[in-house]
Design a protein around this nucleic acid. Structure first.
Length: 552
RNA sequence: GCGGUUGUAGCUCAGCAGGAUAGAGCAACUGCCUCCUAAGCAGUAGGUCGCGCGUUCGAAUCGCGCCAAUCGCACCA
């Protein structure tokens, strides 16, 4: 049991004792005993506002409640309790508690940071899901970083997670890709063409076409238009998918499942539509089929099948989400660009009408990314003629900096990405700062190892009682809680922030506490603490998908 | 007009299941390398938490209204 839980349990039984004695009376349900690490050290190691929260329930002053609890509490880890402020209970732990706790973490080794399994349900996280019609841009990069970090964090927190990429490989966008590549193909082979008005203008389309020509030459030029379109479309699709997977791999992003939209056409889409038709969720009007989404919170009804018989994107999305629910996930998490928020109501309405619980579908929005260089916004890529491709960003600032910067901010804040800062190799740059702390620890290990200093199984942790040492120990204790919260809130920025704070706490330790040149038992205890610290930094950086270099 | 998100130090942002004197980094100023990486550390200064009203013993945090920024409101995705 964690220290926190032990204290909470002790408080709870004290409350029960007080009620049995008649000192406290109530007729309502009591809240949980929430323990927090107080903002100031003089407020103890842990604190709870339980007495203040229950003042109304017990119809007594918070101070009296706190006194009654304090009088009845019994715990072998609490040294003393002080009642402060408006009724806070501040707990001061017995001196040896943190060393026993540290020993547990030390013994856990690489398992520290991996929380107990949360049961058998699997949670699906779907993210990126960009159309295979162009290069991933920095907005997708933010989604890729956030999605992969959330998956990593949730797994560390003990959830079973499956990641998925939905490939929009059907419909208009693919037609546009096909027409664009066809035009470039003819153009590159010397034909005079009119580039399609709604085609993709980016150079990446020309690059794709060049690769196709390099492989297959001009042999499609003589084919009838429809046959050529069919072949070029497929070749372009394959090329675009390779390009996309390549970028993601270089960005440290992997998926368990690649789900093709084509597999939904037409049977699964029709099946979903039939169900909705039969239960009144879909009706016909003006030659089109409409989803009656306004009955379930949407602004208006939406077209599912166009007048011309083509299903809309929404039709595929309904079938897709139905399929997800049918696969039995305990929870579905989608990461969407903020510009898609208008879709939530209609998709949830459809799920409700299909008999699923829309509450199980959680949608996380990623706000926009703006790049800045020299204080100026950078909007377009000079080479690509489009939004800045992720690969250009990676080439400029590196994967580690790109990922860390994407993850520093909460997903629902717009992100100003300072390219100059991300590139700078200085303490101003948070990712370097954290990595530097890790490299420094590794350096210490190299030198202590040369000096013949080795850690044994029973380091004398209690020798470490200075502020810098105790601060670092306590900071490490916070890690499992941070993982749990980051997972619950889908908030990778918590980990980014935590590891930065940890690096900062370590830096103070580094200043005050030498290893080489101090008495051997103390040196070994400190070294053991650094082992735990190094592991924690590395573990947290891994969750973020950022490397932990041993030298810098 | 309707809806989402955001508004906290000069700048970029944490904090938001209500709680103790609102935090961090950058920028500014001041110190610190005979010492395991100065890619570092310590300190000073900097705030009507957009505005107003309300709920509460207590509001940056919850509710309502307003203002501003941004995204969206297709038989596009």
């Amino acid at each position: 049991m964690q220290t926190k839980e032990k204290i909470a349990a002790a408080v709870k039984s004290a409350v029960e004792a007080a009620m049995n004695d008649g000192a406290l009376k109530f007729s309502d349900t009591l809240p949980d005993v929430a323990l927090e690490v107080p903002p100031k050290k003089e407020f103890g190691d842990f604190a709870t506002n339980f007495a203040m929260q229950t003042a109304k329930i017990f119809r007594t002053s918070p101070k009296k409640i706190a006194e009654e609890i304090k009088a009845r509490i019994s715990s072998d880890i609490i040294e003393r309790i002080e009642i402060a402020g408006a009724g806070f209970m501040n707990f001061y732990l017995r001196g040896d508690v943190i060393y026993r706790e540290l020993k547990k973490i030390f013994d856990a080794g690489k398992n520290f940071g991996h929380l107990p399994n949360k049961g058998n349900v699997t949670i699906q996280v779907e993210y990126v899901s960009a159309n295979p019609t162009g290069l991933l841009h920095v907005g997708h990069g933010r989604g890729a970083a956030a999605g992969s970090a959330i998956v990593n964090i949730m797994r560390a927190a003990g959830y079973n997670v499956e990641s998925e990429y939905y490939i929009n490989d059907a419909g208009n966008q693919m037609d546009k890709l096909t027409k664009s590549v066809n035009a470039r193909y003819l153009e590159l082979l010397g034909e005079k063409i009119d580039f399609p008005e709604d085609g993709y203008q980016g150079v990446d389309i020309i690059d794709t076409t060049k690769r196709i020509i390099a492989r297959h030459g001009d042999k499609f030029i003589t084919l009838p238009e429809d046959e050529r379109l069919k072949i070029l479309g497929e070749l372009a699709y394959v090329d675009k998918m390779l390009e996309l997977k390549d970028d993601l791999e270089n960005f440290g992003v992997e998926f368990d499942v690649w789900f093709s939209e084509r597999t939904l056409h037409p049977d699964k889409i029709n099946a979903a539509i039939e169900i909705l038709k039969s239960n009144g969720g879909i009706y016909e009007k003006d030659g089109a089929l409409w989803l009656a989404s306004s009955q379930f919170g949407d602004d208006k009804d939406r077209v599912v099948v166009r007048e011309n018989g083509e299903p809309t994107y929404l039709a595929a999305d309904i079938a897709y989400h139905k399929n997800k629910f049918d696969r039995g996930f305990g929870e579905l998490i989608n990461l969407w660009g903020a510009d898609h928020h208008g879709y939530v109501a209609r998709v949830k309405a459809a799920m409700k009408m299909l008999g699923y619980n829309p509450e199980k579908l959680k949608i996380i929005f990623l706000q926009m990314v703006s790049l800045f260089r020299g204080g100026e916004a950078v909007k377009m890529s000079k080479r690509a003629g489009t939004a800045i491709p992720l690969r250009e960003l990676m080439a400029e600032v590196g994967t580690d900096a790109a990922r860390y910067f994407f993850l520093m901010r909460s997903t629902d804040s717009q992100l100003d990405f300072d390219l100059d800062l991300a590139k700078s190799q200085s303490a101003d740059n948070p990712v370097y700062y954290v990595q530097y702390a890790h490299a420094r620890i590794c350096s210490i290990f190299r030198q202590t190892s040369e000096a013949g200093l080795t850690i044994d199984d029973e380091p004398k942790f209690s020798l470490m009682n200075s502020t810098a040492e105790v601060d670092l120990i306590n900071k490490i204790f916070e890690y499992p809680d941070e993982i749990a919260k980051a997972a619950e809130e889908y908030a990778p920025q918590r980990i980014a922030r935590y590891v930065y704070d940890l690096a900062s706490t370590f830096s103070a330790f580094y200043r005050d506490c030498r290893i080489l040149g101090v008495e051997k038992d103390l040196a070994i205890a400190r070294l053991a603490l650094l082992k735990v610290t190094r592991h924690t930094i590395e573990h947290a950086l891994n969750l973020l998908g950022v490397s932990a270099p041993e030298r810098m």
